[in-house]
């Protein structure tokens, strides 16, 4: 099983845009730890809404930047179909446990499709799932970004042998299951305010150490019990199904022979030179 090339090119500008958005994203997720009572943001009821809007805008910009130069029809169709599977898995898992079998698809898909397409797959699967389950809300941009990172990370893992890859991806699935929960709690943790249990609430005036300790308690109390099963589920699914699914994906990528046409954005050219390619 030889690795396949990435189906969408990763450019230098992609790296810069991704780094900048990741930094803003990290700030948007971790701002409760960074503010103090004298900051312009002190975590009253209106300010947390700034970040969902901001992350939504930046998410759009990032998607536009990653797909600049055009995704060809094959990439669009492949991403669409895989995102549909992710969305369907998300609909099936909607409910109490939030076990999210979707992560399994994002991890394996990201691994095969490469960095750009891996990120896009994660983000689009969330959008599709959100449209289907009607879970569109202030959390959607955060989920898009976090799941996009999961797909990107799977593509960034080092290349290893077939058996090692299975275990590597399983371990990665377990880790991301936990991290995703830890990160996704952060955006609404400040909202809880006084309704959180004692010693687990958010207060902008507390020093960083206390904040982290409180969040640790909050995470352990509420979320760890959910995130661990999710991580384990992803890892088990990867272990069981990685081989056939990776094979199927790689075969499809090879058959589609992505990227045989030079990407128009790379070479200086006039606009829309190959827009009518299908008609020639």
């Amino acid at each position: 099983m030889t690795p396949t090339p990435e189906i969408v090119r990763w450019r230098r500008t992609s790296t810069i845009a991704m780094t900048l958005v990741t930094l803003v994203g990290v700030l948007s997720f971790t701002w409760p730890f960074l503010v103090d009572s004298r900051s312009a943001l002190t975590g009253d009821h209106s300010t947390p809404w700034l970040f969902p809007v901001l992350v939504g805008l930046l998410g759009c910009v990032l998607l536009a930047e990653l797909s600049r130069g055009g995704l060809d029809a094959k990439v669009v169709a492949t991403l669409g179909v895989l995102a549909a599977m992710g969305g369907a898995l998300r609909v099936l898992s909607a409910g109490t446990a939030g076990l999210e079998p979707m992560f399994f698809l994002v991890v394996l898909g990201g691994r095969v499709l490469g960095r750009t397409a891996g990120f896009l797959l994660g983000a689009l699967a969330i959008v599709t799932g959100a449209f289907l389950t009607g879970g569109v809300g202030p959390w959607t941009p955060f989920q898009m970004l976090a799941t996009g990172w999961v797909g990107l990370g799977a593509a960034l893992l080092p290349r290893v042998g077939e058996r090692a890859e299975r275990w590597l991806l399983a371990a990665y699935g377990l880790l991301t299951g936990l991290l995703y929960g830890a990160v996704m709690n952060l955006w609404f943790w400040p909202f809880l305010g006084s309704s959180a249990p004692a010693g687990a609430g958010f207060d902008a005036g507390d020093p960083l150490g206390t904040q982290l300790a409180h969040y640790g308690v909050f995470y352990g109390l509420t979320s760890l019990g959910w995130d661990l099963p999710r991580g384990v589920l992803t890892a088990v699914l990867v272990l069981v199904a990685a081989r056939p699914v990776l094979l199927a994906l790689r075969r499809a990528v090879r058959r589609a022979s992505f990227g045989t046409v030079p990407a128009p954005g790379d070479v200086p050219r006039g606009p829309r030179q190959d827009a009518g390619r299908g008609l020639q």
Binding site: L71, V76, A77, L79, G80, V81, A83, A84, G87, L120, L124, A125, V127, T128, F131, L132
Partner: peptide, 8 residues
């Protein structure tokens, strides 16, 4: 891609 996904 999203529309493809929703249709599919």
């Amino acid at each position: 891609a999203v529309v493809v996904a929703l249709t599919y």
